[in-house]
Protein backbone atom coordinates (compact mmCIF):
# COMPACT_ATOMS: atom_id res chain seq x y z
CA UNK A 1 0.00 0.00 0.00
CA UNK A 2 1.30 3.43 -0.96
CA UNK A 3 0.21 6.44 1.02
CA UNK A 4 1.09 10.04 0.13
CA UNK A 5 0.12 12.75 2.60
CA UNK A 6 0.21 16.51 1.98
CA UNK A 7 3.05 16.38 -0.50
CA UNK A 8 4.33 19.78 -1.63
CA UNK A 9 7.19 20.52 -3.98
CA UNK A 10 8.18 23.89 -5.37
CA UNK A 11 11.04 24.46 -7.79
CA UNK A 12 13.22 27.58 -8.08
CA UNK A 13 11.90 29.06 -4.87
CA UNK A 14 12.25 32.82 -4.65
CA UNK A 15 13.00 33.34 -8.32
CA UNK A 16 10.87 34.54 -11.20
CA UNK A 17 10.68 30.90 -12.34
CA UNK A 18 9.16 29.70 -9.09
CA UNK A 19 6.80 26.85 -9.88
CA UNK A 20 4.73 24.72 -7.56
CA UNK A 21 5.09 21.27 -9.09
CA UNK A 22 3.15 19.40 -6.42
CA UNK A 23 0.47 21.15 -4.45
CA UNK A 24 -0.90 19.19 -1.48
CA UNK A 25 -1.01 15.74 -3.01
CA UNK A 26 -2.93 13.17 -1.02
CA UNK A 27 -3.14 9.72 -2.50
CA UNK A 28 -3.74 6.23 -1.18
CA UNK A 29 -3.10 3.22 -3.38
CA UNK A 30 -4.58 -0.07 -2.24
CA UNK A 31 -2.80 -3.35 -2.74
CA UNK A 32 -3.20 -4.50 -6.31
CA UNK A 33 -4.29 -1.10 -7.62
CA UNK A 34 -3.20 -0.45 -11.18
CA UNK A 35 -3.39 3.30 -11.54
CA UNK A 36 -2.88 5.21 -14.75
CA UNK A 37 -1.80 8.84 -14.38
CA UNK A 38 -2.45 11.41 -17.09
CA UNK A 39 -1.99 15.13 -17.34
CA UNK A 40 -0.51 17.79 -19.60
CA UNK A 41 3.11 18.88 -19.64
CA UNK A 42 4.04 20.45 -16.34
CA UNK A 43 1.05 18.91 -14.55
CA UNK A 44 3.36 17.29 -11.99
CA UNK A 45 3.29 13.66 -13.16
CA UNK A 46 7.05 13.31 -13.38
CA UNK A 47 7.63 15.19 -10.15
CA UNK A 48 5.17 12.86 -8.46
CA UNK A 49 7.04 9.83 -9.67
CA UNK A 50 10.41 11.37 -8.75
CA UNK A 51 9.20 12.14 -5.25
CA UNK A 52 7.99 8.57 -4.77
CA UNK A 53 11.15 7.01 -6.18
CA UNK A 54 13.38 9.35 -4.18
CA UNK A 55 15.24 11.13 -6.97
CA UNK A 56 13.92 14.39 -5.50
CA UNK A 57 12.78 15.16 -1.97
CA UNK A 58 9.43 16.82 -1.28
CA UNK A 59 9.38 20.13 0.59
CA UNK A 60 6.69 18.82 2.87
CA UNK A 61 4.62 15.71 3.48
CA UNK A 62 5.09 12.01 4.11
CA UNK A 63 5.34 8.97 1.89
CA UNK A 64 4.58 5.51 3.24
CA UNK A 65 4.85 2.10 1.63
CA UNK A 66 3.22 -0.77 3.51
CA UNK A 67 3.26 1.31 6.66
CA UNK A 68 6.97 2.16 6.41
CA UNK A 69 7.75 5.85 6.26
CA UNK A 70 10.18 6.23 3.34
CA UNK A 71 10.07 10.02 3.09
CA UNK A 72 13.68 10.44 4.16
CA UNK A 73 15.14 7.32 2.56
CA UNK A 74 17.58 7.91 -0.30
CA UNK A 75 16.74 6.58 -3.75
CA UNK A 76 18.80 3.39 -3.50
CA UNK A 77 17.20 2.38 -0.21
CA UNK A 78 13.71 2.70 -1.65
CA UNK A 79 14.64 0.16 -4.31
CA UNK A 80 13.74 -2.53 -1.80
CA UNK A 81 10.08 -1.55 -2.23
CA UNK A 82 9.90 -0.04 -5.70
CA UNK A 83 10.49 -1.45 -9.17
CA UNK A 84 10.91 1.12 -11.94
CA UNK A 85 10.78 1.30 -15.71
CA UNK A 86 11.92 4.54 -17.34
CA UNK A 87 10.79 6.29 -20.48
CA UNK A 88 14.19 5.93 -22.14
CA UNK A 89 14.79 2.24 -23.01
CA UNK A 90 18.54 2.86 -22.59
CA UNK A 91 18.13 3.75 -18.91
CA UNK A 92 16.72 0.52 -17.56
CA UNK A 93 19.52 -1.89 -18.40
CA UNK A 94 23.33 -2.05 -18.25
CA UNK A 95 24.21 -2.13 -21.94
CA UNK A 96 27.68 -3.65 -21.67
CA UNK A 97 26.48 -6.59 -19.61
CA UNK A 98 24.74 -9.80 -20.61
CA UNK A 99 20.99 -10.30 -20.44
CA UNK A 100 21.65 -12.88 -17.74
CA UNK A 101 23.86 -10.48 -15.78
CA UNK A 102 21.19 -7.80 -15.94
CA UNK A 103 18.58 -10.24 -14.66
CA UNK A 104 20.92 -11.36 -11.87
CA UNK A 105 21.47 -7.71 -10.89
CA UNK A 106 17.72 -7.14 -10.81
CA UNK A 107 17.04 -10.34 -8.91
CA UNK A 108 18.90 -8.88 -5.94
CA UNK A 109 17.11 -5.53 -6.05
CA UNK A 110 17.32 -3.92 -2.64
CA UNK A 111 19.34 -6.78 -1.14
CA UNK A 112 22.92 -7.03 0.03
CA UNK A 113 25.39 -7.90 -2.70
CA UNK A 114 28.11 -10.23 -1.50
CA UNK A 115 31.74 -9.89 -2.57
CA UNK A 116 32.20 -13.64 -2.08
CA UNK A 117 29.35 -15.00 -4.18
CA UNK A 118 29.40 -15.31 -7.96
CA UNK A 119 26.79 -13.19 -9.58
CA UNK A 120 26.00 -15.77 -12.24
CA UNK A 121 24.42 -18.52 -10.18
CA UNK A 122 23.59 -21.54 -12.30
CA UNK A 123 20.72 -22.39 -9.97
CA UNK A 124 18.93 -19.28 -11.23
CA UNK A 125 19.54 -19.83 -14.93
CA UNK A 126 16.48 -22.02 -15.46
CA UNK A 127 14.30 -19.53 -13.61
CA UNK A 128 15.61 -16.60 -15.68
CA UNK A 129 15.05 -18.59 -18.85
CA UNK A 130 11.46 -19.38 -17.97
CA UNK A 131 10.86 -15.70 -17.17
CA UNK A 132 12.35 -14.58 -20.49
CA UNK A 133 10.12 -17.07 -22.30
CA UNK A 134 7.10 -15.18 -20.98
CA UNK A 135 8.17 -12.19 -23.09
CA UNK A 136 7.93 -14.28 -26.24
CA UNK A 137 10.83 -12.41 -27.83
CA UNK A 138 13.26 -15.32 -28.07
CA UNK A 139 15.58 -13.69 -25.52
CA UNK A 140 15.77 -16.96 -23.55
CA UNK A 141 18.19 -18.26 -26.18
CA UNK A 142 20.39 -15.16 -25.94
CA UNK A 143 21.20 -15.12 -22.23
CA UNK A 144 24.87 -14.36 -22.88
CA UNK A 145 24.14 -11.54 -25.34
CA UNK A 146 25.10 -8.01 -24.37
CA UNK A 147 22.03 -5.88 -23.86
CA UNK A 148 23.33 -3.13 -26.14
CA UNK A 149 22.65 -5.44 -29.09
CA UNK A 150 18.91 -5.49 -28.35
CA UNK A 151 16.36 -3.12 -29.86
CA UNK A 152 14.64 -0.45 -27.79
CA UNK A 153 11.49 -2.54 -27.51
CA UNK A 154 13.38 -5.64 -26.45
CA UNK A 155 15.29 -3.63 -23.88
CA UNK A 156 12.11 -2.12 -22.50
CA UNK A 157 10.47 -5.54 -22.24
CA UNK A 158 13.59 -6.79 -20.46
CA UNK A 159 13.53 -3.82 -18.08
CA UNK A 160 9.91 -4.53 -17.32
CA UNK A 161 10.77 -8.13 -16.52
CA UNK A 162 13.74 -7.01 -14.40
CA UNK A 163 11.67 -4.57 -12.37
CA UNK A 164 9.20 -7.32 -11.46
CA UNK A 165 11.58 -10.29 -11.23
CA UNK A 166 11.54 -9.86 -7.49
CA UNK A 167 7.99 -8.74 -6.77
CA UNK A 168 8.02 -5.05 -5.81
CA UNK A 169 5.56 -3.49 -3.38
CA UNK A 170 5.08 -0.78 -5.98
CA UNK A 171 5.84 -0.76 -9.69
CA UNK A 172 6.36 2.61 -11.33
CA UNK A 173 6.15 2.94 -15.08
CA UNK A 174 7.19 6.36 -16.32
CA UNK A 175 5.76 6.66 -19.84
CA UNK A 176 7.56 3.43 -20.50
CA UNK A 177 6.17 2.98 -24.00
CA UNK A 178 6.46 6.60 -25.15
CA UNK A 179 9.77 6.04 -26.95
CA UNK A 180 8.61 2.92 -28.80
CA UNK A 181 6.90 2.53 -32.15
CA UNK A 182 3.13 1.83 -31.94
CA UNK A 183 3.42 -1.90 -32.58
CA UNK A 184 6.20 -2.46 -30.04
CA UNK A 185 4.45 -0.16 -27.59
CA UNK A 186 1.29 -2.26 -27.66
CA UNK A 187 3.35 -5.43 -27.24
CA UNK A 188 5.13 -4.00 -24.19
CA UNK A 189 1.82 -2.74 -22.81
CA UNK A 190 0.14 -6.13 -23.10
CA UNK A 191 3.19 -7.70 -21.42
CA UNK A 192 2.87 -5.09 -18.70
CA UNK A 193 -0.76 -5.97 -18.15
CA UNK A 194 -0.06 -9.69 -18.09
CA UNK A 195 2.80 -9.43 -15.59
CA UNK A 196 0.96 -7.02 -13.31
CA UNK A 197 -2.23 -9.06 -13.25
CA UNK A 198 -0.49 -12.36 -12.76
CA UNK A 199 1.48 -11.21 -9.73
CA UNK A 200 -1.11 -8.69 -8.55
CA UNK A 201 1.44 -5.85 -8.36
CA UNK A 202 0.44 -2.38 -7.17
CA UNK A 203 1.31 -0.14 -10.10
CA UNK A 204 1.48 3.50 -11.11
CA UNK A 205 1.64 4.00 -14.86
CA UNK A 206 2.26 7.51 -16.13
CA UNK A 207 1.20 7.97 -19.72
CA UNK A 208 0.50 10.60 -22.35
CA UNK A 209 -1.80 8.29 -24.22
CA UNK A 210 -5.40 8.71 -23.10
CA UNK A 211 -6.51 5.48 -24.75
CA UNK A 212 -3.90 3.51 -22.83
CA UNK A 213 -4.91 5.30 -19.65
CA UNK A 214 -8.49 4.12 -20.21
CA UNK A 215 -7.75 0.62 -21.47
CA UNK A 216 -5.36 -0.36 -18.71
CA UNK A 217 -5.69 -0.40 -14.95
CA UNK A 218 -8.57 -0.22 -12.53
CA UNK A 219 -8.10 3.40 -11.57
CA UNK A 220 -7.29 6.66 -13.35
CA UNK A 221 -5.85 9.88 -11.99
CA UNK A 222 -5.66 13.15 -13.85
CA UNK A 223 -3.23 15.81 -12.69
CA UNK A 224 -3.07 19.49 -13.39
CA UNK A 225 -0.87 22.22 -11.92
CA UNK A 226 0.43 19.95 -9.19
CA UNK A 227 -2.96 18.75 -8.04
CA UNK A 228 -4.98 15.61 -8.54
CA UNK A 229 -8.10 16.93 -10.21
CA UNK A 230 -9.81 13.69 -11.16
CA UNK A 231 -9.68 10.26 -9.57
CA UNK A 232 -11.94 7.47 -10.83
CA UNK A 233 -11.89 3.74 -10.35
CA UNK A 234 -13.88 0.58 -10.87
CA UNK A 235 -17.08 0.67 -12.91
CA UNK A 236 -16.97 4.42 -13.25
CA UNK A 237 -13.59 4.24 -14.94
CA UNK A 238 -14.76 1.50 -17.28
CA UNK A 239 -17.51 3.77 -18.58
CA UNK A 240 -15.09 6.61 -19.21
CA UNK A 241 -14.33 7.59 -22.82
CA UNK A 242 -11.58 9.63 -24.43
CA UNK A 243 -14.10 12.43 -25.05
CA UNK A 244 -14.79 12.69 -21.33
CA UNK A 245 -11.11 13.04 -20.61
CA UNK A 246 -10.70 15.66 -23.32
CA UNK A 247 -13.56 17.60 -21.80
CA UNK A 248 -11.83 17.50 -18.43
CA UNK A 249 -8.59 18.62 -19.99
CA UNK A 250 -10.26 21.62 -21.60
CA UNK A 251 -11.92 22.56 -18.35
CA UNK A 252 -8.58 22.71 -16.61
CA UNK A 253 -7.14 24.94 -19.28
CA UNK A 254 -9.87 27.51 -18.68
CA UNK A 255 -9.50 27.72 -14.94
CA UNK A 256 -6.36 29.83 -14.56
CA UNK A 257 -6.28 30.92 -18.17
CA UNK A 258 -3.34 32.32 -20.02
CA UNK A 259 -5.11 35.64 -20.32
CA UNK A 260 -5.40 35.83 -16.56
CA UNK A 261 -1.75 35.05 -16.07
CA UNK A 262 -0.76 37.67 -18.61
CA UNK A 263 -2.93 40.40 -17.17
CA UNK A 264 -1.63 39.97 -13.64
Amino acid sequence: MLKLQNIYKTFHVGTINERRALNDINLVLNDGDFVTVIGGNGAGKSTLQNVISGTINPDYGTIEINGVNITKLPEHKRAKYIGRVFQDPMLGTASDMWIEENLALAYRRGEKRSAFKWMIDNNNTAFFKSQLERLGLGLEDRMKTKVKLLSGGQRQALTLLMSTLKKPDLLMLDEHTAALDPKTASLVLSLTKEIIEKSNITTIMITHNMKDALNYGNRLIMMDQGKIIFDVSGEEKKKLKVEDLLLKFNQTKDAPSDAMLLSS
Binding site: H76, A79, L91, G92, T93, A94, M97
Partner: peptide
Amino acid sequence: RATGNNEKMIRALG
Protein backbone atom coordinates in the same frame (compact mmCIF):
# COMPACT_ATOMS: atom_id res chain seq x y z
CA ARG B 1 30.55 -2.76 -13.38
CA ALA B 2 26.89 -1.76 -13.55
CA THR B 3 27.70 1.57 -11.86
CA GLY B 4 30.12 2.39 -14.67
CA ASN B 5 27.61 1.20 -17.21
CA ASN B 6 24.36 2.75 -16.08
CA GLU B 7 24.37 4.54 -12.77
CA LYS B 8 20.68 5.39 -12.75
CA MET B 9 19.67 1.80 -13.38
CA ILE B 10 21.78 0.23 -10.64
CA ARG B 11 20.68 2.88 -8.15
CA ALA B 12 17.09 1.99 -8.97
CA LEU B 13 18.08 -1.58 -8.13
CA GLY B 14 19.24 -0.55 -4.69
